[in-house]
């Protein structure tokens, strides 16, 4: 077997992730913070839970050990805030499916564009990596 075998320090490995503009990497620290937020979102895969959630969002959220901040972010559908509070997009996608949004529409709400502008960008080849690779390098 050839190659570099897991010799990197976990501290160095994790530190790099904070240097990527506009991106929240789903690290263990985020996963721990967002455990119940993500498990709440996962619960919406069941139709009976979706019905209960839609009938009373606040009451449904109160049934989960979430922080008030997390509950407010869900009620406001503030996806960037949910990511900051430990949410992961694959889990949160159960929430936007419950709302009847497509992946692309929900994703566009995390950018500074309208859905129409976002779709136009994607159809023109997507967002260029130029200038958004690294905060430190500015490239």
């Amino acid at each position: 077997m050839s190659g570099t075998l897991g010799k990197q320090s976990i501290h160095e490995y994790l530190a790099q992730f904070d240097d990527i503009p506009g991106t929240r990497v789903y690290t263990a620290a985020r996963a721990r913070k967002g455990y119940h937020l993500n498990q709440f979102a996962m619960s919406l895969m069941k139709p009976e839970n979706r019905t209960r959630f839609k009938a009373g969002e606040r009451a449904y959220l109160d049934g989960w050990p979430l922080t008030e901040e997390q509950k407010q972010a869900v009620l406001a559908r503030d996806y960037n805030r949910m990511l900051d509070l430990g949410g992961n997009v694959y889990f949160l996608s159960k929430l936007f499916s419950t709302d009847g949004l497509s992946f692309a529409e929900a994703v566009s709400s995390m950018t500074d564009m309208t859905f129409e502008q976002y779709k136009a960008m994607m159809n023109a080849g997507g967002r260029s990596p130029e200038g958004v690779r690294s905060i430190e390098q500015g490239n």
Binding site: I20, M110, M122, G126, R127, V132
Partner: peptide
Amino acid sequence: SHQIQGPRAGLINQEW
């Protein structure tokens, strides 16, 4: 290439 989260969502890198 794809990014479906955060303000940088929509990133595509055809060259890479």
